[in-house]
Design a binder for these strands. Structure first.
Length: 208
DNA sequence: CAGTTACG
DNA sequence: ATAA
């Protein structure tokens, strides 16, 4: 199935409307199930211990976590100690369609942005396999997403990411700085609550 | 280190 | 937008 796509920058590809409403509802149900097993929590910044405003959890063999000790991937939830739940099949299918990478993702970071939540400009660089892209899916309220280049001082621009949109960071944009400036309240009817879920699929270890 | 604030 |  051919998909509408827009290459925002080399290797940074936007797929507006990637999931239709039924697909969004099915994926949201999977996310709800995952959160029952692995509750959302507030990560903390390395060194300072300051909490993020975004709440997080993960699916997959590995999950990205941050606390006063630093950033890392680990196999268990930092608060419950339980293994992360499996990555839902719908997300594995999206990875196969969008990543162009022959090996499966090992982590799905689930970020929940309540109204007022922001996430500062950063790089996803804790993965060993940088040949694999990061695949992102949005559910719920529209985000004002910001993306720049591979250096923090590079120019940035913003893109609105709506419910059902996909975004892929690959090639020269794999290490592009990006963040979320804000979430626009009441821009989607998908969630019963306000806010937005973002799901990012990553290959963490070197693919063999 | 993916935060926050002040400043321009 | 940039810096501390």
């Amino acid at each position: 199935m051919a998909r509408q796509s827009i290459e925002i920058a080399p290797g940074a590809v936007f797929y507006p409307g990637y999931l239709d409403r039924a697909g969004q509802e099915a994926l949201l149900a999977d996310v709800r199930t995952a959160i029952l097993a692995a509750p959302l929590y507030h990560p903390r910044m390395p060194r300072s211990g300051k909490p993020f405003s975004v709440r997080m959890t993960n699916c997959g063999p590995l999950g990205w976590v941050s606390d006063v000790e630093g950033y890392r991937y680990q196999g268990t939830h930092p608060e419950t100690g339980a293994a992360w739940p499996a990555i839902p099949q719908a997300l594995l299918a999206a990875w196969r369609e969008l990543s162009g990478f022959a090996f499966p993702p090992e982590a799905c970071l689930v970020n929940y942005y309540a109204d007022g939540t922001r996430l500062g400009l950063h790089q996803d660089r804790d993965e060993k396999e940088l040949a694999a892209p990061v695949v992102s899916l949005s559910l719920g309220d529209t985000a004002i997403f910001r993306i720049g280049g591979t250096k923090r001082q590079d120019a940035t621009f913003s893109v609105k990411l709506a419910s059902g949109d996909a975004f892929v960071f690959g090639g020269p944009s794999r290490l592009a700085y990006h963040g979320v400036d804000r979430v626009l309240p009441a821009t989607s009817t998908l969630l019963a609550e306000s806010g937005r879920f973002n799901l990012t699929l990553r290959r963490v270890t070197a693919a063999k």
